[in-house]
Design a protein around this nucleic acid. Structure first.
Lengths: 195, 195, 195, 195
DNA sequence: GATGAATGAGTGTTCATTCAT
DNA sequence: TATGAATGAACACTCATTCAT
């Protein structure tokens, strides 16, 4: 009767609240209403349970990115879509994003860890998406001629920074920061010359 | 002879490399060439050693902020100074910033922890500094009329995002991202009306 | 199997021989043929194992008191019964009584400790029992008119003193001290007037 | 300036309040306003400081016994004197008696310890004193013909039991228990035949 | 699928004691 | 006398994990 699901959901909650090291397998099992060895029946160990959860969160986030329309009216709309999508994600799956934002920084130095590989995957996805958009926009005259790699880096930093801020601090107080961020970027990138 | 200093420096290194939970007091003492109880002679415990280090890092970062000139040629220079100063900090005290960036996210939910109180302190400092700058700049016509609180929020997110990116990922590859970020903001904020 | 029982019996022995502080959890587990963490599986900690044992000893002692006949031929028989019962207890459960007599004095200042609450319980039981007996005996003319509370106090001191003496010193050498004590009290209390 | 004395007095207080194992050398030194190594300058170690204090208490108690008059009007007065003296001692040097009563039971199994040797010394003193008194009293017809060794044993138990009761429990509430005890013994021992 | 009992390998911490000054 | 710094030896306790059922 859904004991496994129960286990996972309890683990998500506890890992998000207390961190990986601050959560014991005994606590997870007790709060899930099962016994400890059941964790080892379903998972190889605590770490696998943890990475299973992280992978789930990454999967959903990536799915949201993949769902973004590949072709849009103009290139800035793509950038706008990305900002909006990332903010929607953090609002709609807050606990899992929070888990990633609080657990992964301490794990990034281990390149074999899920945190490293999948954050890199997302970073690369962002990079390709934004590089493509910027290059096309510059070529078409929609954007001013900014140095692409560095601008991509700045945009990613801003998007990640907003996720982090929202997720770890009381970001929900700035509900329309999202739109302000979009306009902030629009003013900076759009070519207003001639027109 | 400098055993305490040795202890602290070793702890900084190990905490930054392996995280708080991943570092044992035995390991710290061994690599520092002292015995374990010495930690407990100088500090109340592992946690106090840790917060001592964090406080040191926060102190230095705050000192850098306080050193920023209070009055500048124009308001955007203040914003530029802040971006530059934060990037200089992360380049000049990388290990300690990295320690903060990787350790604190997992501790922010505890409002009593050094991470919470001092990150809030820095957040507030940033907020006041940027709010002041934006309000003056808008009033004088230097800046376009942006919504102040949200724009401040976006700017802080960007600055923090860049610190995080630099600190945890290989941000050093984008050395002039700093200047690109400054220009990015300048284009967005500066009032170009009536050229 | 019976590892828990083994653990408890070993702990009784070692605590009685070496005291609480003089006995380590490692020693208990080793001499019981189990591993240390098993103590923590069955008990919350060393202290709980200790109080579990103390409670067992108190329970048995109280059970012996409760088993004393409520109505007797005369009132002095009650007093005799109490003296005999306490001496029988110390002869039949020597290790546990010795444990109590050597461990509890150091713990009595802590009113929350098992030693305090349960010794008080026994003290009160003795007090009620003896007060009742003395009052009835005096009223009926069986006893001389002694001041009741103080005489109760003296009798309890004598009983406890004999337990202590027997338990901590080589009291077994005075096997018939019990009967001598009974006669000692009888001569003192019985009303010989009008023989 | 009396630092040694200070040390000892503080140690008496702390050992009495918290027991030997519950008191650390650091705590003693701090509360005495000195540093830890000073303990090792004046004493060989914690244990020696402890036995120094115990010996002081035993010395004073023995001195009180020795001060009892060797010849009295009758033999029962000797017994009365002993009861009164022991109760006076516990009222006049409560902390040190309490220290002995709470610390020594756990140490009596070690025959080399001060607790063992000096409590035995006192036990023997009591035994000789009472044996002598009883034998003479019986011979002279002052006392009834009780079995001497066992009666001595009972009397010692009663005296010790009253000290213990007074010292560890709220014995001070029964201030005239002393006189009641004396009368209790008098009635039991005195020969009333053929008045 | 599920559990009660048990364990190996540590972990932070304490404490009496010593050393150099 | 007196101390700041340092240590050796242990200690209670935790936790992820396994085994027999």
């Amino acid at each position: 009767m859904g004991k496994k699901k129960n286990l996972i959901e309890t683990a998500v909650r506890l890992f998000a609240e207390q961190g990986y090291d601050g959560t014991t397998t005994l606590q997870i099992s007790r709060e899930a209403g099962v016994t400890e060895p059941l964790i080892y029946y379903h998972f190889k160990g605590k770490e696998e349970l943890f990475t299973h959860i992280l992978n789930g969160a990454f999967d959903e986030y990536v799915a949201r990115l993949e769902a973004l329309p590949a072709s849009t009216r103009d290139e800035f709309t793509k950038i706008e879509n990305l900002i909006v999508a990332s903010q929607k994600a953090v609002a709609e799956m807050p606990r899992r994003i929070r888990l990633v934002m609080s657990s992964c920084p301490a794990r990034i130095k281990d390149p074999a860890h899920v945190c490293s590989s999948r954050m890199l995957e997302i970073f690369d996805w962002h990079k390709n998406y934004l590089t493509n958009s910027l290059e096309r926009g510059i070529a078409s005259g929609e954007f001013v001629a900014v140095p692409v790699p560095e601008t991509v880096y700045v945009l990613i930093s801003m998007i990640n920074g907003m996720i982090r801020q929202y997720s770890l601090l009381n970001g929900s107080r700035y509900v329309n920061a999202r739109d302000v961020a979009v306009e902030f970027c629009r003013r900076s990138l759009l070519n207003r010359q001639g027109g």
